[in-house]
Design a protein around this nucleic acid. Sequence first.
DNA 1: ACAATAGTGTCTATCAGACAATATCCT
DNA 2: AGGATATTGTCTGATAGACACTATTGT
Lengths: 223, 223
Amino acid sequence: MKPDLARWPRPSVAVDVALLTVRPPGELAVLVHRRADGYGKGKWSLPGTFVHEGETLQDAALRALLAKVGVAGERPEQLRVFDTPGRDDRGWVLSVAHADLVPYERLVSVLSDDRVLARIDGEVADAGGLLFDHDAIVAEAVSWARVEYSARPDPMGLLDREFTLLELQRLHEAVAGVSLPKDSWRRFMTDAERRWLEETGDFQRGSVGKPARLFRRVAPTRL
Amino acid sequence: MKPDLARWPRPSVAVDVALLTVRPPGELAVLVHRRADGYGKGKWSLPGTFVHEGETLQDAALRALLAKVGVAGERPEQLRVFDTPGRDDRGWVLSVAHADLVPYERLVSVLSDDRVLARIDGEVADAGGLLFDHDAIVAEAVSWARVEYSARPDPMGLLDREFTLLELQRLHEAVAGVSLPKDSWRRFMTDAERRWLEETGDFQRGSVGKPARLFRRVAPTRL
DNA sequence: ACAATAGTGTCTATCAGACAATATCCT
DNA sequence: AGGATATTGTCTGATAGACACTATTGT
């Protein structure tokens, strides 16, 4: 005996994704797009979509990334539900916010007049902010990334290849938005007990000064 | 021109609340109820309900607490959305999990044969676990409470009256599930820089041994 | 006086930050 | 050699945990 759930009013449930990246020479940015059609046409917003039946929230987030900004192969994480009444004046719409942080190179090819990276320094919005409550979602996504990056080296795997400690430090500084003390930060990251990094044995070539050791990650990029 | 959101299939959205408490002499427990009617009748579950239109998730959580377990005046916090396909075999149902931690005294009066506190020590379930994925929700609620209580004194305000440091420590030990070092824990909590606690000037009366100072919280109970 | 609990002093190990010395490359 | 960058050594201050000592009550 299954009660008929459909008799009760149900909300529309959207997912919205704050896809962050670190753009050279080291600034945090978020991918936004100008809405091509439907509601809010012409306005800037995060990629998002309504959740379909039989689909997980993460699947919906992936579908939104592919359809709205042409990005594939990411793994967005759920932040929380945004449910302020009136956040979407089409009606009763909840948004499950997601975030991910991905290599800049993977986004370059999708950029266009309608798909741009917006710098984040205190405020996201270049011109008047994003649609709905997307500015708040971006702010939470940045907090999320900063917490992740304060605990271990490059948990989102932005550095796939081998890297020097300076490169890793610059990445962490870009995410954190502050500079980090060279020596103690380095000792923290390379502490032998933690087994986060291992030396490849090779050195960076062709640079001025003493060549830097190359490292690779040992710890998994996610939990 | 508002598109008709109702044309698309929409999920049912529920809220479920893991209402935690610390029961004398100091064990963490969660309030569960036996479902009186409808789906899952007779089974144990967390208090929950479907979200109504025009209502925030928090309001829905409060309504569920009142209707299902007769508890009022709490302030549940959102954990995350549980969306595993098939988690509810009535159909397409998302659950926004919430958690709160409240004084035991406020729950005593609502307890009955069908509303009980289930101890938490590794596993919640006394008899075969809770309905749906509610065991997982309880686990996340416990993690949430432990994170909150590791950072500052009694953030949920379980000790409203004045208290001794030993009482505060026992509370934190109950939440954490481990014992805490008396001296260093005390120094951490009473550190003058942090201004978390202040002495009332009074002392505990009528106990054996040296009377303990009484403290009250200075820091706000939540963010 | 004695039992019992509260509160403090002190030692040690660890760690972050600051600072500076040393190492090793390139031109 | 001289400039530039990497890497390591060392000092200091803060802090947690361990341990033990002192303080203050009730009986």
